[in-house]
Design a protein around this nucleic acid. Structure first.
Lengths: 190, 190, 190, 190
DNA sequence: AATGAATGAGTGTTCATTCAT
DNA sequence: GATGAATGAACACTCATTCAT
C-alpha cells in the first residue's frame, strides 16, 4: 500500500502560495496548482475536498505558522521595550521571509473562499501580543490608547513597508530596520 | 465604442466596487456586474472592451479620484506640520468614506487584471506628497530617513487602522483620530 | 433582442429521448445532449439549471403527454368494455409510437435523477383510469379485485409486449393486437 | 486473473445489486461498489477486468440464477395447468425475493454496459418455458397465439405487479396471488 | 493477493464574450 | 444603443483504471 504523503500536502501549499503571489487569488485554477505541485489534478482532491477547503486550510496553516514565529525568543518576563522589539522584529522577518504567505493571507480576507469561522479562529492567535501592549500601557511606557489601535499602528507600518521594499526590490538593511523600529517606537511611546 | 452615457459608466463602476467588497476580485463575473448595474450583459461590452479593461479603467479612476482628494485644502506654502496634518486627514477620510475603492485598489495590486503600465501610472500621482516630505526633512522637522520609507510608514498605519475600524464596526471618533495622528507624528518627527 | 426559443426546449427533449433509448440513462452526458440537439453546451444551461432538472422536466413532460393521450376519444359515458378498449388501445399506441418516451420513463424510476416529488406528481395523472375500473367492478363486468392490481395487470401486459415487439423487430399486426386485447379482457372479466 | 475467492465475488455482486436498487445503474461508481463490498478499489480489478465485465458477469449470474429457480419443482410430465402454475409461482417468488436482481436486469437492457452477446445468451435460458407453452397450445388449453406473445403476457403482468407491490409497500397475500394467477390463467386459456 | 493513493481523461457547469434582434 | 440568448473554451471536480507498496 502507498501511504498518504504529507510531503505532498506541503508541495500543494507551496505551489498555491507561489501562484497566488504571481497572479492573485483571482487567477488560480486547481489545474495550475496541480501542475505547479507536480501532481495530477485528481490527487489534489485526495488531499482537499475542494478548492474552498484547500484555501481555508492553507489560510489556517499560514496564520498558525506566523503566530508561532511571532513569539520566537520572546519571554513575557522581559523588559517591555526589549520584548516589543523582539516581537516587532519577528513580525518583520516573517513578512519579509514569507512574503508569499503574507500576500496570500491579505488576499484571503476579501475573498469568497474564507469562511466566517476561519476568519474568527485567526483572532485568537494573537492574544500574547495583546497582553504585552496592555502591560506596556500599565507601565506608562506607551500611549494610553485603545490597545487594538496600538497594535494596528504597529502592524500597519510593518506590512506596508515590507510590501514597498519587496516591490521596489530594495533590501531592508540593518540601518533601515533600525530606523523603522525607531519610528514605530516613537509613535507608540508615551 | 465608448459613447457618452456617463451615468451608465458610473453605475458599472459602483456595481463593481460593491461586488468586489462583498466577494473579492476573485469572485465577480461580468454577468453579476451587469445585473448589479441593472443593465444587460452585452451593454457592458459597449462601454468596456473586456473585463480587463473594465478593471483597469476603474483602477485608474480610483487612483485619480484619491489623488485629487488627498490634496484638498492643502497649499504648498503652509507650515509643514499643518500641511501634513491636512493631507494625513484627507488620506484617512478617503479610505474611510470610499472604503470600497480602497479595497478594490488593494486587491488589484496582486491580480492578473492590472497591467504593468497601469501600475506605473499610479506612482506619478503622489508626487506632491513626496515633495512635502522632502521639505520636512530639509527643515529638520522629521527624521532624515528614506522618503519613501517615511511615506510608507504613514500610509501603512492609516490603511491598517481604517481596515481594523471597518471590520470591527468601530467608528473612528475625533479623539481616536487625534491619537492616531499623534502617533504618526511622533513616529515621523526628528 | 433574441427571445428565448421554445423550439429549442423541444429539440433538447427529443435529443435526450433519442440518446436514452440508444445508451440508457447511465450513458448520457450533457455534451452529447447538446451536440445531438445541435446547440452549444452552455445553451443547455440557459434552459435547464442542471442535468437533474432537465431529466425531471422531461420526465414530467412525458408523463403529462402520455396521460393526455390515454384518454383520447374516451368518454366516461361509454359502455364499460368499449371505453376500456379505447383506453387500452391508446396505451398500446402510445407505447408503440413513443417508445423512446416509454423507455425513458421506465429508466427514470430507478435513477438518482428523479426526485420524490416528481415521482409523486405522476400518480395523480391516472385517476380517470382508476374510476373506469371501479365502475367496471360495480357493474360486475370485471373481477372484484384490488383496482390497482387490475390496472397493473393491464399495464404490465401492454408494456412487456411492446418491449418484446420492439426488440424483436416485430410489428404488432391488427390481429395480434386483437389477440392481446382478448387476453387482457379475459384476464380481467368476471 | 480470477482467483477463487468466491466469497469476495459474492460480496461484490451483492454490493452492486444493493447500490443499483438504490440509485440506478446510472449512479454507481467502482469506488462505491468497493466500499459497499468492504474491499479496496484495486481489489475489484483483481476479480473483474473492468466495470463492463463486472456488470456483464453479474447480469449473466442473475439470469442463470433466475432460470434455475424458474423450473424448481417443475416436471415436464405434469398436467399443463399444474406445471404452469408452479412456474408462474416461481417467477413471482423470484421477483419478489430477489427484487434487486430483477431491477438490475431490467436496468441493464437499456444500458451501454450489456453487450449484444450477453443479451442473446439470455434468450436460451428460457427454452423449457417455451416448450411448455407450445404443449399447452397443442392440447388446446390455451389460446392459439404466438408463443412469445403468450409468455410476454404472463411475464408482463408478473413483473409489473411485483414492482407495484414493492413500491407501494404492499405484501402480496396468498389471496392476492391467487387472484393474480386467476387473471393470468383466464387471459391465457382458450 | 490486497491495498488505497495516484492518475488524467472526461464530466457537469460556468463565464467572458459575441451576435441576432 | 441596448438586450439577453448563444457560444464554447475553460473551470472545478469525478471516476474508471493503474501502480507502488
Amino acid at each position: 500500500m502507498k501511504p498518504r504523503d504529507d510531503k505532498k500536502i506541503d508541495e500543494i501549499y507551496k505551489a498555491t502560495l507561489r501562484l497566488v503571489k504571481q497572479k492573485g487569488l483571482a487567477g488560480i485554477t486547481m489545474n495550475e496548482i496541480a501542475k505547479e505541485a507536480k501532481i495530477a489534478t485528481g490527487t489534489l482532491y485526495i488531499y482537499f475536498k475542494n478548492k474552498n477547503e484547500l484555501i481555508n486550510a492553507l489560510f489556517m496553516v499560514c496564520r498558525n505558522r506566523s503566530a508561532a514565529v511571532y513569539f520566537k525568543n520572546y519571554d513575557a518576563s522581559m523588559p517591555f521595550k526589549a520584548g516589543l522589539k523582539i516581537i516587532w522584529r519577528n513580525l518583520l522577518n516573517y513578512r519579509v521571509k514569507k512574503f508569499e504567505e503574507a500576500v496570500f493571507v491579505d488576499q484571503c480576507f476579501h475573498s469568497p473562499f474564507i469562511t466566517e469561522t476561519t476568519r474568527e479562529l485567526t483572532k485568537k492567535l494573537f492574544a500574547p501580543l495583546f497582553s504585552l501592549m496592555e502591560s506596556g500601557k500599565k507601565q506608562k511606557l506607551i500611549k494610553n490608547t485603545d490597545t487594538l489601535l496600538l497594535l494596528t499602528f504597529m502592524a500597519g507600518s510593518i506590512n506596508e513597508t515590507v510590501k514597498y521594499a519587496h516591490y521596489s526590490n530594495k533590501k531592508l538593511s540593518k540601518e533601515v530596520v533600525e530606523q523603522m523600529f525607531h519610528m514605530c517606537w516613537d509613535g507608540l511611546k508615551a
